[in-house]
Amino acid sequence: MNKAELVTITTSYTELKKTEVNKCIESFIAIIKKTLRSGEKVKLVGFGSLKVINIPNREVTDPRSGKRIKVPASKKLKFIPGKELKAILKQG
């Protein structure tokens, strides 16, 4: 599902216009980005949690050449599904 499809589906669930739903989704995304950028965790009960984790400097082996390569530190987004989402996915 892409954003346009999400807007259309959300519009059918609510009495809001597409422009209003789009503005809500844009705001929601902006708030999540700002929260994660500040280092805070986003927790949506029943759905899951998003958090930024720090990946330290490390060395890996290039499989082609066998040489050791230094990989700089980076940040990674981690999603942890909530209990309800896990249960839904488990049911298939």
Results as ranks from 00 to 15, higher is better:
residue 46 G to N: 05
residue 66 G to L: 04
residue 56 P to I: 04
residue 87 A to C: 14
residue 78 K to Y: 10
residue 40 E to T: 08
residue 49 S to P: 05
residue 59 E to R: 14
residue 8 T to D: 15
residue 44 L to Q: 06
residue 68 R to K: 14
residue 65 S to H: 00
residue 57 N to F: 08
residue 81 P to M: 11
residue 52 V to W: 07
residue 46 G to Q: 06
residue 73 A to Q: 06
residue 81 P to V: 12
residue 74 S to N: 09
residue 74 S to M: 10
residue 30 A to D: 14
residue 11 T to P: 02
residue 16 L to Y: 07
residue 14 T to R: 06
residue 67 K to Y: 08
residue 47 F to N: 09
residue 7 V to C: 03
residue 34 K to Q: 12
residue 6 L to Q: 02
residue 67 K to S: 03
residue 30 A to K: 15
residue 56 P to D: 06
residue 51 K to D: 00
residue 58 R to N: 05
residue 33 K to V: 07
residue 44 L to T: 10
residue 55 I to S: 06
residue 29 I to N: 08
residue 88 I to V: 14
residue 19 T to P: 08
residue 59 E to W: 07
residue 50 L to E: 03
residue 55 I to G: 02
residue 37 R to F: 14
residue 48 G to C: 00
residue 57 N to M: 10
residue 58 R to C: 01
residue 54 N to I: 13
residue 45 V to Y: 07
residue 22 N to M: 12
residue 87 A to G: 13
residue 16 L to F: 05
residue 64 R to H: 13
residue 87 A to Q: 13
residue 51 K to P: 00
residue 12 S to D: 08
residue 10 T to A: 13
residue 27 S to D: 11
residue 18 K to V: 06
residue 90 K to Q: 15
residue 83 K to A: 14
residue 5 E to R: 06
residue 63 P to H: 05
residue 88 I to Q: 15
